[in-house]
Nucleic acid binder design. Structure first.
Length: 483
RNA sequence: GGCGCCGUACCCAAGUGGUAAGGGAGAGGUCUGCAAAACCUUUAUGCGGCGGUUCGAAUCCGCCCGGCGCCUCCA
């Protein structure tokens, strides 16, 4: 089965046919860098990370663009209020660009820990003011935009298809529109392309209309089209940006080029915390830096991928600790499997249907990136594998390697949850030397032989206090670091 | 008020027409000096409720109840 993607534009799963045969261009709305990233960012960027990873696994050459919004995103509704970054800068008595730099680094730090692959290009809005002005010029020339007191607005009534992504009609929006205090706009739902800077506004640039700054929506049109072309494959983002942000992007881009903008629109659903929406005003923000203190980043990644990207995800301690146990179980199997491979033994071939698993997992991922289903298959595989690891028979290292290859392809390459180096998956620091641990295991083994169980239990208990867990098996004693 | 989404076991969660994945928790068992891990068995004649379409529905349609999102900050 070929890859199918749920396209918000058609509200259906569609067979994925790229614009260019083997090239895929994907643009995902990145963060506005005025604060630490939270678990909502994690869900969004983990979701698109597996999109990119799976497309690459399928053999596409993917160009992944994710912007950094460092200007123009206002605190109030789309065209009123303070710039978020300026507001933060004022609060902290810093230059706006220092705030941007700080939180951009913080963002990448967090994303790296979640094993999210970096985008190929992370363009900044402030680095593309010229491109944004160029589009605005075209929109004014073609009558889609108008100037008012040094600001420029997009006239939604001129763009017939406005509302096609979010399923809204202009009439409905008039009914639901907020009262406009300043009515520079011809229509209440018109949106800003360029804003004239008020006195005291720091981040501003010259333009044909005023010294000012770009509207929030225009940056994504400018940067996506600059790097991916006027018509490209996938545009992604959080579902809350479907309207107005993405609707506006479509309007201004298609009005400017006369071409269809992104072919497939993908939206990830949102995170709730203990059943409640996570919001600034509710004060229940969970930053990733906080979450990482309680849970290993890969556990959070695993937790996110255990539900579908288009489903809402509820973040609770109960759910997370359940995920941690499941995740440890999965990783445990892979650790033991790899230890067994290292013994490099001959023996029977493990009777696992590797091709069958592979086909099922590809099919699950091809069905609109069904990571939870793929993880379920990894658990099925692990149960089977554990059975053979425990049945006392000797299996050939070569055939065990083939099983391991499944974990590598789907656990690592596609889902990014089972890394190459497994010893680091515990959040405890690995301060105790492995050779020293092996020495203690050997001493304890000797004590057990002599039935000195009080001593052997003492060694096991004390090591556990130090974060080293011993497990006796028929093949000897395994150890691992615990949290 | 307008637009849209969801409601699956004690908890989390896949599943869009063919007779209920997976994880956690619980119960029983195997293995073990003990423990841990692992494995085996077990836990929804049932998918919010009521109708309808169909040979057949968690899946499609209608109504009702409950929860959520967007329309305002947020990925």
């Amino acid at each position: 089965m070929s890859l199918r993607i749920y396209n918000t534009l058609s509200r259906n799963k569609e067979t994925f046919i790229p614009v260019d045969e083997n090239q895929v261009g994907i643009y995902v709305c990145g963060p506005t860098v005025y604060g630490d990233s939270h678990i909502g960012h994690a869900k969004s960027y983990v979701s698109f990370d597996i999109v990119v990873r799976h497309l690459r696994y399928l053999g596409y050459s993917v160009l992944y663009i994710q912007n950094i919004t460092d200007v123009g995103h206002l605190t109030d509704d789309a065209d009123e209020g303070e710039d978020k970054i300026e507001a933060e800068a004022r609060k902290r008595k810093l230059q706006p660009m220092a705030v941007v730099e700080h939180y951009t680094r913080s963002y990448f730090e967090d994303m790296d820990r979640l094993n999210i692959l970096r985008p190929d290009i992370s363009p900044r809005a402030t680095g593309h003011i010229i491109e944004q002005i160029e589009i605005i010029k075209i929109l004014i020339e073609s009558g889609y935009a108008y100037e008012a007191n040094g600001s420029v607005y997009f006239s939604i009534e001129k763009f017939k298809e406005y509302g096609k992504l979010s399923g809204r009609s202009i009439d409905e929006m008039i009914a639901g529109a907020r009262v406009e205090s300043k009515s520079e706009k011809r229509h209440p739902a018109d949106f800003a392309l360029w804003k004239k800077a008020e006195p005291g506004h720091i981040m501003k640039w010259p333009s044909p209309w005023s010294v000012g700054y770009p509207g929030w929506h225009i940056e994504c049109s400018a940067m996506s089209m600059k790097y991916l072309g006027e018509h490209f494959d996938i545009h992604g983002g959080g579902i809350e940006n479907q309207f107005p942000h993405h609707e506006c992007e479509i309007a201004q881009s298609e009005a400017a080029t006369g071409k269809s903008f992104a072919k497939y629109w993908m939206h990830n659903n949102m995170v709730t915390v203990n059943g409640q929406k996570m919001g600034k005003s509710l004060g229940n923000f969970v930053t990733l830096k906080d979450a990482f203190e309680q849970y290993h980043p890969l556990v959070i990644r695993f937790f996110i991928l255990q539900s579908h990207y288009r489903s809402p995800l509820d973040f609770s301690n109960e759910a997370l600790s359940g995920a941690k146990k499941g995740y440890d179980r999965l990783v445990n199997t892979v650790m033991i499997l790899r230890q067994r491979i290292d013994l490099n033994q001959d023996g029977e071939t493990v009777p696992i249907d590797i091709t069958g698993y592979k086909e099922k997992m590809i099919e699950a991922m091809n069905d609109d990136f069904n990571a939870p289903q793929t993880i379920a298959y990894l658990f099925d595989l692990s149960r089977e594998m554990n059975h053979y690891l425990n049945d006392g028979k000797q299996y050939s290292a070569a055939s065990l390697k083939e099983v391991d290859e499944l974990y590598r392809e789907f656990g690592d390459t596609v889902l990014g949850i089972i890394p190459e180096s497994l010893e680091t998956t515990s959040s405890a620091n690995g301060t105790i030397d492995a050779d020293l641990i092996q020495l203690l295991i050997d001493v304890r083994q000797e004590a057990r032989k002599q039935k000195q169980f009080a001593l052997s239990d003492l060694i096991r208990d004390r090591l556990k206090e130090l974060g080293i867990l011993l497990e006796d098996t028929r093949e000897g004693t395994n150890w691992k670091r615990i949290t």
